[in-house]
Structures are given as C-alpha cells and as structure tokens.
Design a binder for these strands. Structure first.
Lengths: 198, 198, 198, 198
DNA sequence: TATTAAGCGAGACGGTACGTCACGTCTTAGG
DNA sequence: CCTAAGACGTGACGTACCGTCTCGCTTAATA
C-alpha cells in the first residue's frame, strides 16, 4: 500500500510532502483503535489527533479503508525468520514473533477492522489479504527450507500445513475471548512437527 | 440472537408481527452482501429491498450489527455431526458441511463483515465470536468423543487441535484469493489424523 | 421560491415537515446577515443557530443560494398599493413602504448577497430577478392605472418610467454610503410627476 | 485598487515583476466569469487559466475580492463626457458609452458578483461602491454643467436626478431578463430632459 | 360488534461522519 | 526578489447513513 505519490528518489517540483504528517496520521489511527476501538477511527478524529488536516490525509490515502490498512501494516511490521537448521525451531520463532506483535493492546480490533474493510465492494481483496499473504509466505518458506534440508517430509502439502500453522493465531485473536498465548504456539509446533517431521 | 419481543406461545393484544417482514429483511441483507458487498448493507437499503419499513426492522433487531449477525446465522445454519465411530470421518464430515455453507456466493464478505463489526467499541465480542464458538464447540466434541472412544490420543490438547482444524477454513475464506476447497479439507484431516490418531 | 415539497392541502404519507424548522432556518439566515454579514451565513452556522440539522435544511432548499433567496423574500414581504385616485400619492406610498422595509438593519447586505447569488452559473436569473420583477410590476400597475384614470400622460413609456422609479432605491441601498431616505422618495416622485403628469 | 507594491519609477533590488503575469490574471478572471459564471472564479482556476502561480497573484492583489474588482475596473474602463453645450446630448453620450461597456458578454455576472462581494463582512463598501461612485460622479458633473450653462433648472436636486439617470442601467443589467438597450437610454434622457430642462 | 393495542409503510428528524473544494500561506528548486 | 509547482491548515460544502419519531392506516384479539 504505497502513497498515491510514488515519491521515489527523484522528486518533482513543488513543496514536498512532510514525513511528519504521514507518521502522525498512522500513529493517530493506532492510538485511537487501541484506546476507543474501531468506531472511533473517524477521519476527523484522526486528523485532529494527528494535528493534521483532512486534505493532507486524503492526499496520501484515498479513503478510510486505505488508511486503516496502511496503519495496520506499519504497525505489525516485518516478519522474517533466518535458517536455524531446524524447522520446528523456526516455526516456533515465527509464531512467537507474531504473538509478540499481537500482544499490543488493540491489535485484535485493528485486525478485525481490516478484515471488515476487505468485505467492501471496491476493496482489493488485498485489504486483509496482503497481511495474510505475508504471514503465509514466511510460513511456507520455513517449510520448504525444511523439505530441502530434509527434516520435513518430502510429500508434505506445504500450503495446507502453512495454513494450519498460520490460521490459529488470527482465529484466536479475532474470534475468541482469550487471545493466542505461548501455550497455543507450543501446541501448534508440536502437532505439526509430529505430522510432517521427517 | 432472539427477537426483542420474545414472541413465545402466549401473545399480547394487538396486531401480531408478520413473519413475512422478518424473512424479507434477512433475505435482503444476504442479497445485498452477495451482490454489492458489506458497504451496501444500509438499513435504508435493506428496508427498500425487503419492501419493508425501517421501524419494522428496528422492532425486531436493535441495530445494524444485530441484523447482520442474525442474517449470518440464519444463512450459515446449524452444524452437527453424529457419532460415526471414527474421528477422521467425523472431522471430514464437519469440514465438508462447512465447506458447503461457505460455497454460497457472498459468504466470504458476510463473514468478513461480521468480523469487522466485532471490532466496534460497544460490540459484545459475540458478534463473530458466537459463530466461532459454535464451530469450535462441534470440533471439540468430535475430538473428545475420539478420546473417549480411543482413536484419539489421550494426551491430546483438544483446544489447540480444534483450533488448527477450525481456523484454516475461515482463514482461507476471508484472507486468500481462493476459497477453501475439498483439497484443504482432505489435507487437514490427514495431518490431524497423523498427529493425534491413536 | 416554493419548498421542494409542494405541500398543498392534500398531504402524502409519512411524517409531515415541521413548520418550526422552516421558520427557524429562515430566521437564522436573517439574524446572521444582520449581525455578521453575508459571509457568516454558513449552512453549518444557520443549522446551529436555528437548532436544526443540515439535512433538514437541504430537504427544503437545494443549496445556499436558494436558502438565501427564500430568506430575503420572506423578509421583504409583499408590496401592494391600492387605488388612491392620484398616481403621485400612490408612487409615494409604494416608495415609502419600500423605504420602510429597507430600513431593517442588514437588508442592504442581504440584498447584495442575493444579487451576487444571481451571478452564479446555474442560477435562474430569478435569484434577484424575482424580487426585481415584483417591484417593477407594482410600479407599472400604478402608472397604468394613472393612464387609464387620465392623470398620467397617455404616451408614457411605462417600462422606462417604472425603471426610473424602482431602480434608485436599490442603487442607493447597495452601492452608496448612505441608504435611501425620504428625501430621495420625494425627489423621485416630484420629478416623475413633472415628467409624465397629464 | 493599486498593486500592493507601488511600483513607481524607482525600483528596489531583485527581479522585477512580469507585466505578463498581471495581464494574464485579469484576463483569466474575465474569461472565467463570461464562460462559467462567478462561482468558477477560483484562485486556483485563475492561476491555471492564466498559466501563473498562486503566489504570483497574491503578490499583486491581497485576495479574491481585490482581484475581481481590479478585473472589473480594467474591463469596464473610464467614463468621461466633454462639454457638448447641451446636457441632453451629454447624458445621451454617457449612457450610450455605458451601454457599450455593458454589452460585452458576462458583464452582468461580473457586476452582480462585485455587488455580492460588497456584502461580505470585512468588505469596504467600496467593492461595488467605487464603480457606483464613478458613474454617479460623471452624471452629476453633466447636470452641474447644465445648471451653470443654464439649460438645467437651477432648483434641480442634482443627486436625486443623477441617481435616476444612473440607476436604471445597472438595475436592468442585473435584475431583468433583457439587458439595457438604446430604447431605455432614449427614454431616460427624454424624461429627465422634460423634468429638469430649463 | 366495537374497542383497543400494536402492527404496518412512508418519510421527516437530529446527529455524525464522509470525502471534496476553495482560500490564503508556506516551502521547495530554479531564473 | 521573482518564478512555477504543489503541499499545508482551515473551514465550509453537500451527501449518506444511523436510529428515532410522527403520521394515517390496517389487523387481530378482547370486551
């Protein structure tokens, strides 16, 4: 989800965009969600909280949906697990990292909001899908590395297993009363290890 | 999610509610979601589409959220799997039934919308949580039956396994480009069988 | 300038418009103009001052221009001079009545605002033209009555003379530092009497 | 309405202003009014149409009102009638000249717009008043010359008569469906001649 | 059979947020 | 110091939707 203005290395004429505005807006979204829930994420409220004007926001993102998605992405951050020589350890590391990012207050609502936004008509499925794809991608990478390495069974249905690893965290976060915890991480890794370990 | 008016056997004086109105409203929600996405589900739009007045709707459900949840519940229907003597077969049956209900066009958006609605401030987590709980409940029942029967390992972490079974369907439905399919069902049952089969 | 809803004797179904809202909005426009000038006549300001919602205003008038025109018409009121047997006396009466209505504080700005509104693209010339036509009409009626009666020269160019009678008041009101006064009225009647009296 | 920078003979250091910019801006105002009405006269629109930047405009005029007034003045031009030995002829000449300047398409809207602008809160009445004063001044001069010369009655109320001569043109231009024409000019001169001719 | 309570469609109401537009200022890079 | 380009804060615009209320009517159970 890039800004409307590409804003690469070269820059056109005219006053450049202020980075401060971009950051302030995204932070404001996060703060509002965490404190008062998604319904408090009003464009006016974001503008006021960020000390920024509405037009300045609309210059960067085409609407509320895009803003929320951008905020979610910026907040949740990157996921990447290096080769540790053992797929069980790597899965554990990935899930623990995700657990960490989900522990911030309000992520559950923000994520639910993003999922909701992806239900709109014009929404590129990418709304929540982009995040989903990123999580899936890293999970698959670990499994494929394991197959290459030999500690994951060669006949493993990588996509299905990755889904079973990736999905429970979000499922618990969004749908259940208790958020995901270390216990869930341990159990998932244990079960997957048992099912596809070589 | 019951009507505001209990409307049991006994009934007060005055004109009784018309069943037609209730049905028409729920159908209108579903039709609008399927055709135009969640953002088209306006109370006015539902009223017009259903050929029903707004007060008539508000007499039955306290607001938009309740109406949407009611529509989702009515649409997705009940889940229940009888004892088949084999937990693998029963899980397969349950997932296949869910697959069926998810195949109707628009469920993905309806479900995403319900999840989004649960992110609002005042929302009882139950919005989407109620559905989630039902799915989890039936899945756990199958596993527990398996433990009792002896074809599921006695040391199984039922909750974690149930999450791994239940979550992938929704994850795919909501976040991925391709909806869940038979292949996913097979893979999930196979893997779980391998991991917790006695 | 009628309400969008004809609202004659018969009434359609649904909740009827509240007269209170209509009156309050028009009064608010007048009050704002008188106290702070045309630029204070914001739709938001009118709504707040009137204790009325913006949508309620837009249900009655299609925009700011229409609202201002309606307010001006309601404020300035009707003009009508009965047959007094002498066209000089009748002209004097008409001009004095107009003088009176122009004396209310803020009319000058309101009238100027209406004229300005008639310069917009989509504006029916009627914006200010409607008022202009009413004034001209009554003035012409007096002159024509005079011709029929015989105290106005039969060869009089009624339209031109009426313009010379009607225009000065507005001209002074809108363009000059001093508003029109009794002296101007006397002078106009005297001169016209001299020029077209039989 | 002079430029903000006096710009007399002596000139400070730095790059001098480009005359091209000034002319282009004024022309753009006129073109926009004529083609699309006053509401199309946006500072941005003027800048774009003139091929000029907004700051360049604000360096010359303090705001929209000033710009519009400047454009109107530049467009309508000077009025001055030399002594012809007969006040009737002179009045006729003056009104005919004004008729000419009013015939350009769009003047009606431009003038109405200027009048409207004079209704704003902070506006020096001069907005339209300046033009009004100029017209009145020249008209009065003719009448006074006539009194001195002896072909206008000595007891004439110069101000009132001048108003009756000057007002009808604007009244017709702004408020009526048909703009002023030669017929109106003839009639006004004829009537005034009859009323105040010696 | 008449009464009465509650249903019904229609549509206006206050409120709140939306996304847009214009104003006048400021900031950049370049003459 | 000028220029064009374009972002900025401010604030109004006109629209959409929410949930409520008022209207005149219909419908059934009760008296």
């Amino acid at each position: 989800m890039v800004d409307k203005q590409g804003q690469g290395v070269v820059r056109g004429p005219g006053r450049p965009r202020e980075e401060r505005v971009t950051r302030a807006a995204l932070d404001a979204v996060v703060a509002l969600v965490a404190e008062q829930g998604m319904s408090a994420v009003t464009m006016d409220a974001v503008a006021e909280r960020a000390g920024v004007s509405k037009p300045a926001i609309y210059r960067r993102w085409s609407g509320k949906q895009e803003l929320i998605i951008a905020a979610a992405e910026a907040w949740i951050g990157e996921l990447s697990v290096p080769d540790r020589g053992d797929f069980r350890a790597e899965l554990h590391e990935l899930l623990t990292a995700r657990l960490e990012s989900y522990r911030q207050p309000g992520v559950d609502r923000l994520l639910a909001g993003v999922i909701g936004a992806s239900a709109e008509a014009g929404a590129d499925r990418g709304a929540y899908g982009a995040y989903s794809a990123r999580v899936m991608g890293e999970t698959r990478r670990i499994l494929e590395r394991g197959i290459a390495r030999g500690d994951v069974r060669a006949d493993t249905d990588v996509r299905a297993v990755a889904t079973m690893v990736a999905a429970p965290m979000v499922f618990r976060l969004v749908g259940e009363l208790e958020p995901p915890d270390r216990h869930l991480v341990d159990a998932v890794v244990e079960l997957v290890g048992r099912a596809v370990g070589a």
